[in-house]
């Protein structure tokens, strides 16, 4: 069953950046890529429970602020030590200025 949640406005996120979005006791990270597409992942690093929204976005990569573990935020793929567990990703849709993510 589709469960689309309005997460933020498009303008809330700078290009090539990330913000934190909390919902229903869970935390997510929502990204805006350099080519202006939007993406969502679990909010916490799979290494230690640190908010990825405090990390650095470079191209398709989010770098964790704690130990610089890297993920591709479009695919969730872990891309370098110390992270080896992939990040869960969520479908994202843009409706006008609103960014929605689909939760399970």
């Amino acid at each position: 069953m589709a469960n689309w949640i309005a997460a933020c406005a498009a303008d809330d996120i700078d290009e090539e950046d990330v913000i934190r979005f909390d919902h229903g006791g869970r935390t997510f990270a929502i990204y805006r890529s350099p080519d202006d597409t939007f993406h969502a992942t679990d909010g916490l690093c799979t290494h230690e429970k640190v908010h990825l929204a405090d990390g650095l976005v470079m191209d398709d990569i989010i770098e964790c602020p704690k130990h610089n573990g890297r993920f591709n935020y479009k695919t969730g793929e872990a891309r370098g030590a110390p992270v080896c567990v992939n990040l869960k990703i969520y479908p994202v849709r843009r409706e006008g200025d609103t960014i929605l993510i689909e939760l399970d």
């Binding site: 640190v50 650095l56 770098e63 964790c64 602020p65 704690k66 610089n68």
Partner: peptide
Amino acid sequence: PGGAVGRDVRI
């Protein structure tokens, strides 16, 4: 606290 300084130190 936590990840507060990580991004800017990385830059």
